[in-house]
Write a protein that binds this DNA or RNA. Structure first.
Lengths: 159, 159
DNA sequence: CGCGACTCGATCGCGCACGATTGAGTCGTC
DNA sequence: GACGACTCAATCGTGCGCGATCGAGTCGCG
C-alpha cells in the first residue's frame, strides 16, 4: 500500500513541522505551567491575566478587559462572573453611560494580585529564555498575530 | 512592595509584553485563520489535525493520535467520536491487544483529507513568514514547549 | 420628539482541554 | 491458576473560546 492517496501536489508538510501545531503545543505548555504555579490560589491562567490587567489599568469597562486579552464579551463575561463570585472584583454600571459595566478589583483581589505578582518572573525562568530571546519571540508572535488577524478580517468583511 | 526575587525583579511586566499573552493570542489567531479556511468542510482545527496525522501515519491507536497532538485520551476520545459520527474514520479494537483501539480513515475521510491538503500552504501564506522564518519559529516554539513541559514534569512527579 | 443605527454586555450552544476517575484488558510473579 | 501492577480508552465535571443572538441604553438625524 503506497502512502500516497490520490493526486496530491506533494504538499505533505509533516505534522511535526507545522507552525500551527508548534503554536498550539507551546500555548498548552504555557497553560500547564501557569496551572502549576496558580493552583494554590484557585486561579486559572485567563483569570490571572484579568487580575493583571485590572492591576495595571485600574477600573475598566468589560470591553477594555476584553480588548487587552484579545477576546469578546461572550468569553469575558462569564470569566468576570466567576472572579466576582470569588470576591476578587466588583461590577457596576457606569453612571455616565448605563450600557457600560465598570470592573474593579476588591481589596481581596488586589491582595491576591500582589501575592501572585512574581509569577511572570517564574514563567520567564521556566521558559529557559533570556530577556533578549523572550523579547524577540514576543515581537515575532505579535507580528504573526497581527498578520493572521488581518487575513481573517479581510475574509470576513464586517460592518 | 519589597520584592526580592533573584535577578529579574521586573515584577511590573506590562501585560502586552508577556510571552504568555503573545503565545495565547497567536494561538487564537491561528485558530481563527483555520476556522475561516475549514468552515466549508465542517471541520475544526483539532479535527483537521487528526485527519492530517492519520493521513501521515496510517491506522493508529488512540494513544498514537494523542501523542502527536500533545493531548490525552480525555480530549482525543470525544474528538474521534465526532469524526466517526461524520463518517470520516472508524474505530475498532485491535486483534492482538483488546485494550487498544485502532483508528483508521474511511474513504470519505481520505477524500476530505485530500481536499484540504493545501490548507497548511495557505496558512503559511497567511502568516507572512518565509520558509526560513517559519522553520526558525517552529524550532523556537518546540524548544520552549519542551522546556516548559520539563518544568511541569519536575514539579508534578508522576509514577 | 421619534425613529433607526449603533454600542455594550449578557446569554446560549457547541467544541475543545484537562484533572480525576473508572473499567476492561494484559502481563509478571508467585 | 490467582493476584497485583500496569496500560489503554472512555467518562464526568469544570472552565475556556467563539459564532450567533438578544435586550438595554445611547446618539444622530430629520
Amino acid at each position: 500500500m503506497g502512502t500516497t492517496v490520490g493526486t496530491t501536489t506533494g504538499t505533505d508538510v509533516p505534522v511535526d513541522q507545522r507552525l500551527c501545531l508548534a503554536l498550539y503545543q507551546a500555548s498548552h505548555a504555557m497553560d500547564a505551567t501557569y496551572r502549576v504555579l496558580l493552583e494554590g490560589y484557585g486561579l486559572t491562567y485567563p483569570q490571572y491575566t484579568v487580575l493583571s490587567v485590572l492591576r495595571q489599568d485600574g477600573p475598566s469597562p468589560v470591553t477594555g478587559v476584553a480588548r487587552r486579552l484579545g477576546l469578546s464579551s461572550n468569553t469575558v463575561s462569564p470569566l468576570l462572573k466567576r472572579l466576582e463570585a470569588q470576591g476578587l472584583l466588583t461590577r457596576r454600571r457606569s453612571v455616565g453611560d448605563e450600557r457600560t459595566v465598570l470592573v474593579e478589583l476588591t481589596d481581596a483581589g488586589r491582595r491576591l494580585g500582589a501575592e501572585v505578582d512574581d509569577v511572570p518572573a517564574q514563567i520567564t525562568a521556566a521558559s529557559g529564555l533570556d530577556e533578549g530571546q523572550q523579547a524577540e519571540l514576543v515581537g515575532t508572535l505579535h507580528r504573526l498575530s497581527a498578520t493572521l488577524r488581518e487575513g481573517v478580517e479581510r475574509t470576513a468583511p464586517e460592518g
